[in-house]
Design a protein around this nucleic acid. Structure first.
Lengths: 213, 213
DNA sequence: ATCCGTTGTTACTAGCGGTAACGTGAATAT
DNA sequence: ATATTCACGTTACCGCTAGTAACAACGGAT
């Protein structure tokens, strides 16, 4: 039969693809985002051209690798934002979800956030092209959630997008720094960030002696 | 005389170094952060080994190149934060200063924020090592300013650092996204971000029909 | 005359991403 | 039975990169 053969082939190909991705993940976890295609092929027990047949180029492999983890994280964040509690608690839960994820698997996080930039990329003004795609996606997701649920007045969508990307950037930068220095337990970081979002900078008093911030 | 000779040599060396840095900057502005050492040497009218004698390795050259712009930006931000107005206006001025800088020279900004990561870097848990050094520095600077001037209660320093890195990250991510899409003029982005920092997310009402954010 | 430090060269290494050309083996079609 | 197809796999190569040895030339200082 023809269809059976085709389906067998396709499922076998997909299984092989998954195996290759798992080998790649092992190497990336060991060597960081700079892992070479040679090393990945060796880990999978094959040679380079097969890798290129499956994923096109290095960017393709890395994109395929990133989609898995990104999806998982986005799902977890959605769940946190959908919990039936008040807004402050949900924001704290989302922050904690993200920070717990990067705390548990810093290598994966580093790979997702700082993917190797391909040298042959476009030139010009596409600054964002080289930036981490995960951050952009998280920002957009958060923006839609905000626009759906929060009453922001006239320029609702514009504000929601600015806030979405801004909040994600805040979370990311603070998390990146915190992961490097570990100056406090996670729950305190979460509370500090939530306080900041709840207008902490606006309501705090000036400190005596200075010109005030 | 000996000292005269030495001083002449040193000043000549420094002048040469500056020339090389200017050539490197021209190439980076043209080719992006992926500019090759060969291209930079050619632009300076010399060959690679001289570049390596002056800067050690590519990271050294890039670091030297980054310090200049970083210093300039930090100075501008300090000036904005030291203006004799109220806190909200100063925060808006600082945001606007940063965004105007990245708007004026996106190539420089991209170079500073996404420096080429060296493949031979350290392994292990130093996630922050590969992250943009400029962001870290801005975060620390802002943290000290906040700690100096804002009354944050008991865990003052810890909160100031979290907020410093968080705010810088917010500014950076929103700016990065904005620079790519240009969805609104700069002044509106500044106002949206300031509104967010002034507790906009906490005080906005739920939108009818959803579970509320 | 000799040494020293700097500037500069050419020619090389090792490794990278990526590709062309080729062989193998199993299932299908005739 | 034979020919076709198609994925899997190889070796050997290309052009590029960062980085390095080895050597030459010039200008003071001793």
């Amino acid at each position: 039969m023809e269809t059976t053969h085709r389906e067998d082939q396709r499922s076998a190909t997909e299984r092989r693809r998954r195996e290759l991705l798992e080998a790649a993940e092992r190497v990336v976890l060991r060597d960081g985002p700079g892992a070479s295609m040679n090393a990945i092929a060796a880990e999978a027990g094959i040679t380079k051209p097969i890798l290129y047949r499956h994923f096109g180029d290095k960017g393709g492999l890395y994109r395929a690798l990133a989609v898995r983890h990104t999806d998982a994280l986005v799902d977890a964040l959605r769940a946190a934002l959908d919990a039936p509690t008040d807004r402050r608690e949900r924001v704290e839960a989302a922050l904690d979800t993200y920070l717990a994820a990067i705390e548990a698997r810093p290598q994966v996080y580093r790979f997702l956030m700082h993917p190797a930039e391909e040298p042959g990329g476009e030139r010009g003004f596409d600054v964002g092209q080289y930036s981490a795609p995960l951050l952009r996606r998280l920002g957009e997701e958060l923006a839609t959630v905000i626009a759906e649920r929060v009453d922001l007045g006239a320029d609702r969508e514009e504000r929601a997008r600015v806030w979405g990307h801004g909040i994600v950037g805040m979370m990311h930068a603070a998390g990146d720094w915190w992961l490097g220095e570990r100056p406090c337990p996670r729950e305190r970081l979460v509370r500090h960030l939530a306080d900041l979002l709840w207008g902490g900078l606006a309501t705090a008093e000036d400190l005596a002696g200075g010109p005030g911030l």
